[in-house]
């Protein structure tokens, strides 16, 4: 591929290399590598379906050019835990019925994880709403998403 450059990334703890064109977005690169859990909803940074953790911060991967994140550590929703060892957010989203069509769910979980990591483990209602404000969901009305995050916060507090 003309103009393509090899970019090294760590994705969910694994070293990966991707041949990226200068205008290729991180969203395109991640999906090209098979991380289909990173969803494309608008490619304009409006919907948050493509959110991943970039060195621990939630970002819209559609807004980042892959060339600009050389060497970065990326975490997708599947990097937070497995079916056998789920993250409390996975478990709470399942148990509280927080996913309907599920297309926005990976982005919502990433946004919530970023909030837990960076703000507080006891999010107020306002913390939670602000953290999710960049993630559109058309199915749930957010109520069960809020319930799930409350539940995950409780599980995490109990675990200490």
């Amino acid at each position: 591929m003309k103009d393509a450059k090899i970019i090294r990334l760590t994705v969910n703890g694994r070293e990966r290399e991707v041949g990226a064109l200068p205008n290729e977005t991180l969203l395109e690169s991640l999906r090209g590598l098979g991380y289909f859990e990173v969803k494309s909803g608008c490619e304009k940074g409006d919907c948050g379906a493509c959110a991943v953790l970039l060195d621990g911060e939630a970002v819209d991967s559609c807004l980042l050019l892959t060339w600009t994140v050389e060497g970065a550590s990326i975490t997708t929703v599947s990097g937070l835990g497995s079916v056998d060892e789920p993250h409390p957010l996975h478990k709470a989203f399942i148990d509280r019925g927080a996913a309907q069509c599920g297309y926005c769910t990976p982005g919502l979980i990433i946004a919530a994880k970023s909030m837990f990591d960076n703000d507080t483990r006891e999010p107020s209602e306002d913390d939670m709403r602000l953290a999710l404000s960049g993630n559109l969901c058309r199915c749930t009305g957010y109520t069960k998403v809020f319930d799930a995050i409350d539940e995950a916060a409780r599980i995490m507090r109990e675990r200490g």
Partner: peptide, 21 residues
């Protein structure tokens, strides 16, 4: 009963494959 839906784990873990995947 308010049981977790059978499609919930796949969706929460990002394993569900949609048509575009």
């Amino acid at each position: 009963k308010p049981l977790p839906r059978i499609d919930a784990p796949g969706k929460a873990h990002g394993k569900t494959r949609y048509a575009g995947d």
